[in-house]
Design a protein around this nucleic acid. Structure first.
Lengths: 153, 153
DNA sequence: TTCACTGCAAATGCTTTGCAGCGCC
DNA sequence: GGCGCTGCAAAGCATTTGCAGTGAA
C-alpha cells in the first residue's frame, strides 16, 4: 500500500498539516546528525548507536531508532535495506559515492570507484522509466592473503 | 549471514566435491514448489505459508522457511527484501545470473542483465588479487507509474 | 533400516511502544 | 510553563533452532 520511506509508521497528514511538526533541536538529534555527516556509507541503526557510544555521546537505542526514522520521514536521509534485512541510513549525497570489494574471510575492504557501473545503472533505470535512482554494488571474494592461506590449508 | 543470494553454492571448482546433500522429495517440498509456480509475484514466507494453509496443505511455518531457504541456496528461486525488510521469494524467470531494478514504492521488480557490470566486477577483483568472487547489484528507484503519482502529490 | 525432513515450541535479535521525567522553545 | 523528546524496559514480530517422531530411498 502507500508506503513511507520507512516501513510501518505512517504519518497521517489527514488530521493536521504536515509542516506543523516542529522538530526540536536536542543534543541527541545533533549527535546523530553529526555522526551521519562523518560517515559516507550506509549504517544500520545498531551501528550508529554503537558509534555514538564510542564517541561518548549517550543516546539510547530507542531514541536512535526514533531520530533516524524522523530524519527519513523528512527526507533528510536515504533509507535502504541491507542483505540481512536491516534498515540502513545514509545522509543524502548524490555525489562522490563508491563501492566496496570485501574479503569474505578476513573482512578486509577495498574502496573502489565504478564510473562504468554508475553509468550503466543510470542508463538501465532510464530505459525503464525509473526515477530517483539509487543502487548498491558489492563484490565479495577472497583477498590475496586469504587466497594463499586457503590454498595451503 | 544467512543471506543466500550469493549462496556461494558450487563456486568451488574441482578441489572438493560439493557435499552430497541429497534433497528428498517430500509432499511439503512439492507443495511449496507448486505454489511458487502459481504465483508470478514475490511472496514472503509468511504469505506463502498462509496460501498453503488455504489450499489445505499442511506445512508448518518453520518448514516453509527451511524449504524456501533451501531453494534459494540452490538458485531455484530469487530472494529479495521488500520495503518492510521481509525476505520475499519468486521462482526464477531467468535461469542465468541477473540483477534487479526495484521500485521503492510499489515493489515492482524488473530483471536486468548486466554483462558490463559482470566484466567490471571481474576486472576490479583481478586488479586487487581477489579470487572466488561473487557480487550483488541492486538498483532502487521509482517506476514510471509511481513517479507520476509522487509528482502529483 | 537409515537418516534427512518435519512439526512444535522455545529462543533470538531487530524494532517499536508505553510511561514518566527532562529540557527546549 | 507547555509539550515534544528521551530513556528504560517490556512488547511485538519475523526468523531460526533444538529435539524427537515420521517417512523417503
Amino acid at each position: 500500500m502507500s508506503q513511507g520511506t520507512t516501513a510501518g509508521s505512517s504519518r497521517t497528514p489527514a488530521s493536521a498539516p504536515v509542516q506543523g511538526k516542529e522538530q526540536r533541536v536536542t543534543k541527541q538529534r545533533l549527535a546523530v546528525s553529526a555522526a551521519l555527516d562523518d560517515l559516507a556509507d550506509f549504517v544500520s541503526t545498531q551501528e550508529l548507536h554503537r558509534i555514538l557510544q564510542e564517541r561518548g555521546t549517550t543516546v539510547s537505542l530507542a531514541t536512535s531508532y526514533r531520530i533516524l526514522q524522523s530524519l527519513a520521514d523528512d527526507g533528510l536521509v536515504d533509507v535502504l535495506r541491507n542483505a540481512d534485512g536491516e534498515a540502513v541510513y545514509r545522509r543524502c549525497a548524490v555525489t562522490g559515492h563508491h563501492h566496496h570489494l570485501l574479503c569474505r574471510n578476513c573482512g578486509k575492504a577495498v574502496e573502489v570507484e565504478a564510473p562504468a557501473v554508475e553509468a550503466w545503472a543510470a542508463r538501465i533505470a532510464n530505459e525503464h522509466g525509473f526515477t530517483a535512482v539509487e543502487h548498491t554494488v558489492e563484490i565479495f571474494g577472497l583477498c590475496p592473503e586469504c587466497t594463499a592461506n586457503q590454498a595451503g590449508q
